Simulated assay, not measured.
Amino acid sequence: MSEKQKINWGVRFKNKVWVSGFVSQTLLMLQAIFLGLESLQVIDINIESVDAWVAWLTGITNVILAYLAYLGLVVDPTVQGVGDSYKALKRTEPLREE
C-alpha cells in the first residue's frame, strides 16, 4: 500500500458485507440521481405509468438496499464477518495517525 493511500481498498473488497453495503449505497445513489434529474426535467421517466406492483417491488428493494448499506457502514472491513477486531474492541479512543 502506498504512503498516500489511507484506505486499504483490497481488504475492503474482500469483505462481502462491506461490498454489499457499497453496492447498495451506489444503487440508491444512482436512483436518487435519476429521480432528481427527472424532477428537473433533464431526463424523462414516466413514473405515473409504472404499475402498482412495480412500485411496491421498488419500495421493498429500496428497504433491502438501505439495510445492506447500513451493514456496510457499521462493519469493520478489516475483519471477517460483522464484528470488530480484538484490538478495535479494546480501544477507548480512535487510533491516531503517526
Score class of each variant (00 low, 15 high):
residue 60 I to E: 05
residue 13 F to T: 12
residue 79 V to Y: 07
residue 49 S to K: 09
residue 81 G to H: 01
residue 92 T to L: 04
residue 61 T to I: 15
residue 5 Q to H: 02
residue 49 S to D: 06
residue 59 G to V: 10
residue 34 F to W: 14
residue 18 W to L: 03
residue 20 S to T: 14
residue 57 L to W: 05
residue 76 D to S: 03
residue 14 K to H: 06
residue 67 Y to E: 06
residue 64 I to T: 02
residue 23 V to P: 09
residue 39 S to A: 09
residue 24 S to Q: 02
residue 79 V to D: 09
residue 89 L to H: 12
residue 25 Q to A: 13
residue 91 R to A: 07
residue 66 A to F: 13
residue 53 W to R: 14
residue 42 V to M: 15
residue 52 A to Q: 11
residue 75 V to C: 02
residue 3 E to Y: 04
residue 73 L to T: 08
residue 56 W to G: 07
residue 18 W to F: 12
residue 64 I to A: 09
residue 88 A to K: 03
residue 96 R to F: 14
residue 22 F to N: 00
residue 5 Q to R: 08
residue 72 G to E: 02
residue 16 K to L: 00
residue 59 G to M: 09
residue 54 V to A: 13
residue 11 V to R: 01
residue 44 D to E: 13
residue 40 L to A: 14
residue 36 G to L: 06
residue 83 G to R: 06
residue 59 G to S: 10
residue 19 V to S: 01
residue 36 G to M: 09
residue 54 V to W: 15
residue 2 S to P: 08
residue 28 L to H: 09
residue 61 T to C: 03
residue 78 T to C: 10
residue 20 S to M: 07
residue 93 E to T: 14
residue 65 L to E: 07
residue 86 Y to D: 10
residue 60 I to M: 06
residue 92 T to P: 00
residue 81 G to C: 14
residue 66 A to D: 00
residue 55 A to Y: 13
residue 50 V to C: 01
residue 48 E to H: 06
residue 5 Q to F: 04
residue 78 T to L: 10
residue 20 S to C: 07
residue 73 L to E: 03
residue 53 W to N: 10
residue 1 M to N: 10
residue 53 W to M: 15
residue 10 G to A: 07
residue 40 L to I: 03
residue 60 I to G: 00
residue 64 I to P: 00
residue 72 G to F: 04
residue 80 Q to K: 10
residue 12 R to P: 00
residue 24 S to G: 09
residue 50 V to G: 00
residue 36 G to C: 02
residue 91 R to Y: 04
residue 25 Q to S: 12
residue 44 D to K: 15
residue 60 I to W: 03
residue 4 K to C: 04
residue 8 N to P: 00
residue 98 E to T: 11
residue 56 W to Y: 11
residue 93 E to N: 11
residue 96 R to M: 14
residue 42 V to E: 11
residue 66 A to H: 09
residue 57 L to S: 13
residue 4 K to A: 14
residue 84 D to T: 01
residue 98 E to C: 05
residue 40 L to T: 07
residue 45 I to W: 12
residue 90 K to M: 11
residue 47 I to L: 15
residue 6 K to L: 12
residue 38 E to C: 08
residue 53 W to C: 05
residue 1 M to R: 02
residue 26 T to L: 05
residue 77 P to E: 10
residue 67 Y to L: 12
residue 74 V to C: 04
residue 52 A to E: 14
residue 68 L to G: 02
residue 88 A to M: 08
residue 82 V to C: 05
residue 41 Q to E: 14
residue 96 R to Q: 12
residue 34 F to T: 13
residue 94 P to A: 00
residue 53 W to G: 06
residue 59 G to C: 05
residue 1 M to V: 09
residue 91 R to S: 08
residue 12 R to N: 05
residue 46 N to V: 10
residue 96 R to G: 11
residue 88 A to E: 07
residue 77 P to V: 03
residue 43 I to E: 00
